[in-house]
Amino acid sequence: MRHLFLPFAILGVLALAVFLGPLLWRIDPLEMDFTAFLAAPSLDHPMGTDATGRDVLARFLAGGRLSLLVGAVVMIAGLVPGALIGLISARVGGLVDTVLMRVMDSIAAFPPILLAMAVAIGLGGGLWAAVLGVVVSTVPFFARLMRSEVMRIRSFPFIEASEAMGGTPWFTLRWHIVPHAATTMLVQCASVFGYAIITLAGLGFVGLGAEVPTPEWGVMITEGMQYALTGQWWLTIFPGLGILIAVVGTNLLADRLSKVLGGGNS
């Protein structure tokens, strides 16, 4: 478990900061201070202010909450249908398997970010349209992984033993296959969590994610981009660091989980 300390520490500190930070830092992320435009980091504004006088720290914390929240939403919303499709496909097989997998292949054929953009544009943009776009792009990954896991686990002797002892196919699936596949899916979940955060930030960056004035890290980078060359570095660096920490944390978690849980499986 010591392998997991670092990623859990990174994500834990980030989660604590963004969820508990507002209890200590009570500035409204939407409140404008007309006397402090583009103020550099100071004791009053530790991360400075933006072009409309809003406190960047307050927006950073609110943006972090949003990023972690939508990361979790995408992870769950992609996992549930994806895993179900994978299970049904592997368990039923035949024509159902072929049709479901070809549908998943069709979705996976599009680069995920482009697919997410297409869905977001089709739904008129906005945060939740972007979230749905990212969810759609993650479903095939979960589905294919779950299917391959079920196929792999089904060949193990303990599955044969369960069936020989009279276990129904659904009993075997519920009590023997799914629990073993769960570890792999957990790794995938961690990976998708990071992917969701960076993709939503990317969609926000190109104007397809959260709408103004919602504080979201990608949107904050877009808003601050034109100031990057004129010395107001804090507008892009802090939200950029937020994305970096969240994504490094989740990717590290996925990587370490894979090692820890993968070792157990083998």
């Binding site: 939407l30 409140e31 404008m32 072009a51 409309t52 103004v212 004035p213 808003e223 034109q226």
Partner: peptide, 13 residues
């Protein structure tokens, strides 16, 4: 960017 900034300020004001 200028129009967006004005719109954001008016939104709050």
């Amino acid at each position: 960017a200028e129009q967006e900034q004005i719109a954001t300020i008016l939104q709050g004001a």
